[in-house]
Amino acid sequence: LTVQLGNLEWHFDNPEQALKMAEELAKRYQLKVEIDNGTLKFK
């Protein structure tokens, strides 16, 4: 699973870790998370 923020990307083997990080980033920057083809992206 990949977490993508702008041109930064983090790759996780563990989806739970990816979701946890995505939630933290979304909270911190007040963004919405969307999943696009196995990639978590922020809007």
Results as ranks from 00 to 15, higher is better:
Leu1His: 06
Leu1Val: 09
Leu1Thr: 08
Leu1Phe: 13
Leu1Ile: 12
Leu1Ala: 05
Leu1Glu: 02
Thr2Tyr: 05
Thr2Leu: 07
Thr2His: 07
Thr2Lys: 11
Thr2Ser: 08
Val3Lys: 01
Val3His: 02
Val3Leu: 10
Val3Ser: 02
Val3Thr: 01
Val3Asp: 02
Val3Met: 05
Val3Asn: 01
Gln4Gly: 03
Gln4Glu: 05
Gln4Phe: 06
Leu5Trp: 15
Leu5Cys: 14
Leu5Asn: 02
Leu5Phe: 14
Leu5Arg: 01
Leu5His: 04
Leu5Met: 08
Gly6Met: 05
Gly6Cys: 14
Gly6Val: 03
Gly6Arg: 05
Gly6Phe: 06
Gly6Leu: 06
Gly6Trp: 08
Asn7Asp: 10
Asn7Lys: 14
Asn7Phe: 14
Asn7Val: 10
Asn7Trp: 12
Asn7Ile: 10
Leu8His: 12
Leu8Glu: 05
Leu8Phe: 13
Leu8Thr: 07
Leu8Cys: 15
Leu8Ile: 11
Glu9Leu: 14
Glu9Ser: 14
Glu9Thr: 14
Glu9Phe: 14
Glu9Gln: 13
Glu9Cys: 15
Glu9Asp: 05
Glu9Lys: 15
Trp10His: 02
Trp10Ile: 09
Trp10Asp: 00
Trp10Ala: 02
Trp10Pro: 00
His11Tyr: 12
His11Asp: 03
His11Ile: 09
His11Gln: 05
Phe12Val: 03
Phe12Ile: 03
Phe12Ala: 02
Phe12Trp: 05
Phe12Arg: 00
Asp13His: 09
Asp13Ala: 10
Asp13Glu: 11
Asp13Gly: 08
Asn14Pro: 04
Asn14Gly: 04
Asn14Phe: 09
Asn14Ser: 10
Pro15Phe: 14
Pro15Asp: 05
Pro15Trp: 15
Pro15His: 11
Pro15Ser: 10
Glu16Trp: 12
Glu16Val: 13
Glu16Gln: 12
Glu16Leu: 13
Glu16Pro: 03
Gln17Thr: 11
Gln17Phe: 11
Gln17Met: 12
Gln17Glu: 14
Gln17Leu: 13
Gln17Asp: 15
Gln17Asn: 09
Ala18Glu: 00
Ala18Leu: 06
Ala18Gln: 01
Ala18Asp: 00
Leu19Ala: 05
Leu19His: 09
Leu19Met: 13
Leu19Ser: 04
Leu19Trp: 15
Leu19Tyr: 13
Leu19Gln: 05
Leu19Val: 08
Leu19Arg: 09
Lys20Ser: 09
Lys20Asp: 06
Lys20Asn: 07
Lys20Pro: 00
Lys20Thr: 09
Lys20His: 08
Lys20Ala: 12
Lys20Ile: 10
Lys20Leu: 09
Lys20Tyr: 05
Lys20Cys: 07
Lys20Val: 08
Met21Phe: 15
Met21His: 11
Met21Ile: 10
Met21Pro: 00
Met21Asn: 02
Met21Tyr: 15
Met21Val: 09
Met21Ala: 06
Ala22Arg: 01
Ala22Ile: 08
Ala22Met: 06
Ala22Gln: 01
Ala22Lys: 00
Ala22Pro: 00
Ala22Tyr: 04
Ala22His: 00
Ala22Cys: 04
Glu23Leu: 14
Glu23Pro: 00
Glu23Asp: 09
Glu23Val: 12
Glu23Trp: 12
Glu23Tyr: 14
Glu24Ile: 14
Glu24Thr: 13
Glu24His: 13
Glu24Trp: 15
Glu24Ser: 12
Leu25Glu: 00
Leu25Phe: 11
Leu25Ile: 13
Leu25Arg: 00
Leu25Cys: 10
Leu25Lys: 00
Leu25Gln: 00
Leu25Tyr: 07
Leu25Ala: 01
Leu25Pro: 00
Leu25Val: 06
Ala26Tyr: 05
Ala26Thr: 04
Ala26Trp: 07
Ala26Ile: 06
Ala26Ser: 08
Ala26Phe: 07
Ala26Val: 05
Ala26His: 03
Lys27Arg: 13
Lys27Met: 08
Lys27Asp: 07
Lys27Pro: 02
Lys27Leu: 08
Lys27Cys: 13
Lys27Phe: 08
Arg28Lys: 13
Arg28Tyr: 09
Arg28Glu: 05
Arg28Ile: 08
Arg28His: 07
Tyr29Cys: 13
Tyr29Trp: 09
Tyr29Ala: 03
Tyr29Met: 06
Gln30Arg: 13
Gln30Trp: 09
Gln30Met: 10
Gln30Asn: 15
Gln30Gly: 15
Gln30Cys: 15
Gln30Ser: 10
Leu31Pro: 01
Leu31Gln: 02
Leu31Asp: 01
Leu31Arg: 00
Leu31Ser: 02
Leu31Cys: 10
Lys32Ile: 15
Lys32Thr: 14
Lys32Val: 15
Lys32Gly: 06
Val33Ala: 04
Val33Trp: 15
Glu34Leu: 14
Glu34Gly: 03
Glu34Ser: 08
Glu34His: 12
Glu34Cys: 15
Glu34Asn: 06
Glu34Gln: 09
Glu34Arg: 06
Ile35Tyr: 13
Ile35Asn: 11
Ile35Leu: 13
Ile35Arg: 10
Ile35His: 08
Ile35Pro: 02
Asp36Trp: 10
Asp36Gln: 10
Asp36Asn: 10
Asp36Tyr: 11
Asp36Pro: 00
Asp36Glu: 14
Asp36Ala: 10
Asp36Met: 11
Asn37Tyr: 03
Asn37Ala: 06
Asn37Thr: 04
Asn37Gln: 07
Asn37Trp: 03
Asn37Asp: 09
Asn37Phe: 04
Asn37Pro: 01
Asn37Ser: 07
Asn37Gly: 14
Asn37His: 07
Gly38Asn: 10
Gly38Phe: 06
Gly38Leu: 06
Gly38Pro: 01
Gly38Ile: 04
Gly38Ser: 05
Gly38Ala: 06
Gly38Glu: 05
Gly38Asp: 07
Thr39Met: 12
Thr39Ser: 07
Thr39Asp: 04
Leu40Ile: 15
Leu40Phe: 06
Leu40Gln: 01
Leu40Val: 15
Leu40Tyr: 10
Lys41Ile: 13
Lys41Thr: 11
Lys41Trp: 07
Lys41Ala: 04
Lys41Gly: 03
Phe42Ala: 03
Phe42Ser: 02
Phe42Cys: 14
Phe42Met: 12
Phe42Glu: 02
Phe42Asn: 02
Phe42Thr: 03
Phe42Ile: 15
Lys43Gln: 11
Lys43Asn: 08
Lys43Arg: 11
Lys43Met: 12
